[in-house]
Write a protein that binds this DNA or RNA. Sequence first.
DNA 1: TGTCCACGTCT
DNA 2: AAGACGTGGAC
Length: 319
Amino acid sequence: MFSSKLLDWYAKAQRKLPWRTAFKNPYHTWLSEIMLQQTTVVTVIPYFQSFLKKWPTVHDLALASLDEVLVEWQGLGYYSRARNLHKCAQQLSKSFPSKEEELVKLPGIGPYTAAAIASIAFDQKSAAVDGNVVRVLSRFFTIDTPKPTLEVREKLMTLLPEKRCGDFTQALMELGALICRPKNPSCGICPLHDDCQAYQQGKQSYFPIKIQKQKLPTRYATAFIIRREDGAILLRKRPLRGLLGGMMEVPTTPWADTKSEGSGPLVRHTFTHFHFEVNVQSSHEPTFFEGIWVHPQDLKAYALPTVMKKIIKAGLKAT
DNA sequence: TGTCCACGTCT
DNA sequence: AAGACGTGGAC
């Protein structure tokens, strides 16, 4: 049957991951699941480890300031996750719910993450549907709707075993990551291929059905690397909401739909929903921008998103 | 090069 | 309820 085949495969094929330990630790499960939202395992591992080193328990994290959390989070992206993590830690420090219905009320925890924590950390019979699970089950059942989350969730509920729910949840996602990959799935060695409808029909590449994406627009700006006489650079903090909320930046012109002229180096960066082209201008001029002066060697103490690191690097090289 | 991964959560 | 929200690596 489905769950025993899957669990047998998982017992021998699973990867060793820092959050996949013999003793369940809800803090570790929560932290890893937030980091893993829209983000690959390889990227997450070093962040997970440095967070645990700095904040060994959820109570330690609850005492941290938002700025400290953002500094540790810098480069991971989707910075609202860090802002919600900071908020959530303070609630979890008081009480850590084990039920999906309670977990989903917490900041940064949606339907997927609530079910994942409930099942992985507390062995509850909860259906965690992420991109891997959608792919595996839409192939297994040849589900051909474009947004099949709800159908997948219903199917998954019927497959969940009474025991070892946490292992089952992880096993299904592990199968999606290692065997039932988006491209070139290894159906030949898949433990479920006898019953997989898509594979039996030779149609695994048709599932899941995807909606085509529209082309990304490009936005333009000029960024200013303003140096003080002693070499310090002017930084300022972005508003707490919206794009790169709460992160530091160098001053820029407003991000516009039309090209801004300039002669400095060009930095390109792609965000979720637009391309960004920045002309980097270096100057020693006095400035009307408000901000703080930071020496290049001290930049690591500030929460800088990757796009700003690129801009500063290009600006310093050019001078 | 450009597309996909990447359904995850919030507003 | 559709769009906002990062990043990097695979191909």
